[in-house]
């Protein structure tokens, strides 16, 4: 990976990217409230399982979106974008990906990093979930697909570690230890995302759906998902 591409990926995957990622816990806050995530071990356990769910659906779809943007294939981008949004099965999970996707999509336009063909494909989407905006940005910045996929999975995992540090709570050292230990899981998730065939995808995660639904009516919460 060239240093220019590496620097661009670091910026794209940074928690300081202004898309509001820090306001979403991706179901984790409900698991903390339920007492399921309560220390370093259970935090790591949750994020490992969460990455497994991502590796079955969102990550392989991001992989397909990266290929589709690269080929400037409007039809393929539209197909996977629609499937990704419709596959988000709770109100908060749908809002989370659409709000972040909207912000990142707007950033791509305002930063003037994308060519006309990419902008046109993005503009033609009825709704922009985060992976679609991320794939468009990665393609615009010339980040290799394999690295973009790792970057997206890493920033999701990092976001959850931050939520654990804040809400479990975990110490800073403990959080960094968890994140470091997740690297091999992230690599495995990326490999799986690249190898799954279309009919091997699965977004069926009723346990996670129930945590998200529980969060909608949770009395005390600081995150939006």
């Amino acid at each position: 990976m060239q240093s220019t591409a590496l620097l661009r990926l670091l910026q794209l995957a940074s928690p300081s990217l202004p898309v509001g990622a820090y306001t979403y816990s991706q179901g984790l806050e409900a698991a903390i409230e339920a007492g399921m995530v309560k220390d370093e071990d259970s935090a790591r356990g949750w994020i490992v399982e969460w990455l497994g769910v991502a590796a079955d659906f969102e990550a392989p779809i991001l992989w397909r979106l990266l290929k589709a943007f690269s080929a400037r294939d409007l039809e393929a981008v539209t197909f996977w974008t629609e499937r990704l949004v419709a596959g988000r099965d709770t109100a908060e999970f749908r809002a989370e990906t659409l709000q972040m996707g909207y912000s990142l999509g707007k950033l791509v336009v305002d930063l003037k990093i994308a060519d006309d063909a990419l902008l046109e494909i993005l503009a033609r989407q009825v709704e922009i979930p985060l992976p679609t905006a991320f794939a468009c940005a990665a393609e615009a910045l010339g980040v290799p697909h394999e690295n973009a996929l790792l970057g997206m999975l890493f920033s999701s995992a990092e976001n959850q570690v931050l939520a654990c540090v804040k809400s479990v709570p975990l110490g800073q050292l403990s959080g960094q230890r968890v994140l470091l230990s997740l690297h091999s899981t992230i690599e495995r998730a990326a490999l799986q995302a690249r190898s799954l065939m279309d009919d091997e995808l699965s977004n069926w995660a009723p346990g996670l759906s129930l945590f998200s639904m529980r969060h909608e009516t949770q009395y005390s919460r600081i995150y939006r998902s």
Partner: peptide
């Protein structure tokens, strides 16, 4: 417009059956 999409793939006896995020 696709408004709902669910794809399930579950192998009997797999870790997914015990995974708290799945079954």
């Amino acid at each position: 417009k696709l408004i709902w999409y669910e794809q399930l793939r579950l192998s009997g006896g797999s870790p997914a059956m015990r995974n708290p995020l799945l079954l």
